[in-house]
């Protein structure tokens, strides 16, 4: 797995993984921009969700914390950005920073609870925390707009000069740019000693302690980082969509993010990206027909992935690719 190459297998001679990640995100963004100029709002939404799935990968794929409540971090940050804009903070970059900060703080707070447990109690706590946040967002209508959503805010122009156009071009390009930077940064972090240690913790907690590592603070730290990434996604959604709804904190959002992650391959940032993309393209193609067919097909796809490619599509693709290569001399 080239993307996971450790100290011994420096991934590629010419491009560092970070630069490769940065360029690939831009290349994908450019393709989307050129081919689907009328669907930029939809593509921007995908980018925003990609942050959530990457964020989920950090705790689930790299630390082994299975969570069904991760949308809480995404949604809280989205509401924070929306409210900041409502209070007059119009600069989109400031709003993103607020989203990242609020996400990080929420991540640290929930991580501090969730990282104390393992297995079923941990999973149930992630669900409960997610549902609790969802219930609160519904209740605190003065902050969230309740079920109507929060939309009475305006976002100023980017860098104080470039206004968001009605076709969503600026919004999309800004989203892609931020995704490219964050993705490259994350690729770097997972190659760092900290990233290596979290993978080790996921593999075997007992052994990790036996090399002298403190588990809990590392998991909480990763939760904080994950919260920041989810927060950027949430804030980005608030900025580009102009509305923050309860769907951002919903169980369905958490569950579908997990589905996207495992589809692409947990424990691999490229997998998170691929899973997000595949899921949305699939959704776009099918769900227009009939929402229930969409559910049947997603269900069938999940079952097939578990049975035939249990480590995700990207890993399955790598295996298939190497088999094909081995066959042809």
């Amino acid at each position: 797995m080239a993307t996971r190459a450790g100290p011994s297998g420096i991934a590629s001679g010419l491009l560092s993984p970070e630069l490769l990640g940065f360029l690939v995100v831009w290349a994908l963004g450019t393709v989307g921009y050129v081919l689907f100029p009328d669907d930029l709002a939809f593509l921007t939404r995908i980018v925003s969700i990609a942050f959530l799935v990457l964020s989920l990968d950090l705790v689930t794929g790299y630390c082994g914390v299975a969570t069904l409540g991760h949308a809480a971090l995404f949604g809280i940050a989205a509401y924070a950005a929306g409210n900041a804009a409502r209070a007059g903070w119009a600069d989109p970059l400031v709003l993103l920073a607020i989203g990242a900060l609020v996400g990080a703080v929420s991540g640290l707070a929930t991580g501090a609870l969730i990282a104390r447990f393992r297995g079923l109690p941990q999973l149930v706590l992630t669900i409960a925390v997610g549902q609790l946040v969802a219930a609160l967002c519904n209740k605190l209508g003065w902050l969230t707009g309740g079920s109507d959503g929060l939309s009475d805010y305006t976002v100023g122009p980017l860098f104080g000069r470039i206004a968001f156009d009605m076709y969503g071009r600026v919004a999309f390009l800004m989203s892609v740019a931020i995704l490219a930077v964050v993705f490259a940064l994350l690729l770097r972090i997972v190659r760092s000693p900290f990233g290596l240690l979290t993978r080790a913790i996921k593999d075997d907690t007992v052994k990790a302690r036996m090399i002298g590592a403190s588990i809990y603070p590392r998991l909480v730290a990763m939760y904080g980082l994950s919260g920041a990434v989810a927060g950027i996604g949430g804030a980005l959604g608030a900025i580009t969509a102009g509305v923050v709804g309860l769907d951002g904190v919903s169980f369905e959002r958490s569950a579908s993010a997990l589905v996207m992650l495992v589809l692409g391959g947990a424990g691999n940032l490229w997998g998170a990206l691929a899973g997000t993309l595949v899921f949305h393209v699939f959704e776009h193609l099918v769900s227009t027909a009939n929402p229930f067919h969409w559910m049947s097909l997603v269900g069938a796809m999940l079952i097939l992935v578990v049975v035939f490619a249990p480590r995700g599509l990207s890993f399955g693709a790598i295996v298939l690719w190497s088999k094909l290569r081995a066959r042809s001399p």
Partner: peptide, 28 residues
């Protein structure tokens, strides 16, 4: 650590022993 290579297993222990696993920006 089953998802790491042999060298990564040892390198991680060395890094941990030298107190460098807090570093999150420098590639191993």
């Amino acid at each position: 650590f089953s998802s790491l290579t042999a060298l990564e297993n040892v390198a991680l222990a060395v890094l941990q022993h030298r107190g460098r696993t807090r570093n999150w920006l420098r590639p191993v």
